[in-house]
Amino acid sequence: MRVAVDQERCCGTGNCVMIAPEVFDQRDSDGVVVLRQPQPPPAHTAQARRAAANCPCAAIKVDED
């Protein structure tokens, strides 16, 4: 699995950080998403998928390949 974020689309709600803090973080200055693990380990893949599904701005993409 590979995760990508579009910081231009991010609206800074922080849903991703609440769901998968091991994979995502936020910039202190404006709350925009920061990707901590572009290839999360198996223990965090379900949370990464859930964070992508719950992103109100569709700023998170998950590639299952």
Rank of each mutant, 00 (worst) to 15 (best):
M1P: 11
M1C: 15
M1L: 14
R2L: 13
V3I: 13
A4H: 12
A4S: 15
A4M: 07
D6C: 10
D6A: 06
D6Y: 07
D6G: 06
Q7D: 10
R9I: 00
C10Y: 02
G12S: 14
T13C: 10
T13G: 05
G14E: 07
G14Q: 09
C16Q: 04
I19C: 06
E22I: 00
F24G: 01
D25I: 00
D25A: 15
D25W: 01
D25V: 02
Q26G: 02
D28A: 13
S29M: 00
S29F: 02
D30W: 02
D30S: 07
D30L: 01
G31M: 09
G31F: 05
V32L: 14
V34H: 03
V34T: 12
V34F: 02
R36C: 01
R36T: 00
Q39A: 11
Q39M: 05
P40Y: 10
P41W: 09
P41M: 02
P41N: 00
P41I: 08
P42W: 00
A43T: 13
H44C: 09
A46P: 01
A46M: 11
Q47G: 11
A48W: 05
R49T: 03
R49K: 13
R49H: 13
A51D: 03
A52S: 07
A53N: 06
A53G: 03
N54W: 08
N54G: 08
N54I: 04
C55Y: 01
C55K: 00
P56M: 06
P56F: 07
C57L: 05
C57S: 15
A58G: 05
A58N: 12
A59I: 08
A59T: 06
I60G: 05
I60W: 03
K61Y: 02
V62T: 11
D63E: 13
D63C: 06
E64S: 10
D65T: 03
D65R: 14
